[in-house]
């Protein structure tokens, strides 16, 4: 192999949304060559208890794209560090690491996509399946001029049509929801309010 000066991959950072964590970096380009990358991680435990050992990432040993899904590596609410090196044939760059450690409690939580429907007098709600960490705090009320008593229910998982309330004939009900992620003790903002009207009294 012709000896090439292989720089360490720059600009390492973690982008995290809804508990999906993606590590990215700027590519190392060598004209006419394909550069591969390897990713390793360490949690707080590795830094303080095992003299800073590193663990190969679950999915990114010798990949060619400058991006790695590290969701399966980050499974505790502590500060993690990542390092990446470039390899070309038998040559390897030095490791580059995160400028700032990453903790999953900084993930961006978006408000949930929700669909409300009815089966006769029954108000039904359905959420997208966002994975095992997510619960949904659903707030709902009957629209009426004088009182707007809000009720709420916790829906434990997405992907199912869940019964919310038995509606009064002809009344309009409104619903809004936010996600709750207990492991990081945070929740998203509420989504857009949606309303639906119950069927009228069935004709005799």
């Amino acid at each position: 192999d012709e000896v090439v000066n292989l720089p360490a991959p720059p600009d390492l950072s973690v982008h995290s949304t809804n508990m999906k964590h993606i590590l990215t970096w700027s590519p190392v380009t060598i004209p006419g060559e394909t550069v591969n990358y390897s990713v390793e991680y360490q949690g707080e435990y590795e830094r303080y208890y095992t003299s800073s050992t590193w663990i190969p990432s679950s999915w990114c040993s010798s990949i060619s794209t400058p991006e790695c899904n590290v969701t399966d590596d980050i499974t505790a609410t502590v500060a993690y560090n990542f390092r990446v090196k470039a390899t070309l044939g038998s040559q390897s760059s030095s490791w580059s690491t995160l400028k700032e450690l990453f903790n999953r409690n900084s993930t961006v939580l978006t408000s949930p996509r929700m669909k409300i429907s009815k089966d006769g007098y029954h108000l039904i709600v359905e959420f997208e399946d966002m994975g095992p960490y997510f619960e949904f705090n659903v707030t709902y009320w009957k629209k009426s001029p004088n009182s707007q008593k809000e009720l709420y229910k916790i829906v434990r998982e997405g992907g199912n049509l869940v019964h919310l309330e038995t509606m009064e004939a002809g009344a309009e009900y409104c619903v809004k929801a936010q996600t709750i992620v207990e492991v990081i003790e945070r929740s998203s903002t509420f989504n857009q309010v949606e309303c639906i009207r119950a069927q009228d009294e069935s004709p005799l």
Partner: peptide, 26 residues
């Protein structure tokens, strides 16, 4: 889970107590 054979809709209730009622059905 309750499945309405007329409207072909199925939905779920998650409960902890041992008695429940589905009111306002057809």
């Amino acid at each position: 889970s309750i499945y309405n054979t007329k409207t072909n809709k199925k939905w779920y209730k998650f409960v902890t107590n041992h008695t429940l009622e589905f009111p306002q059905l057809e």
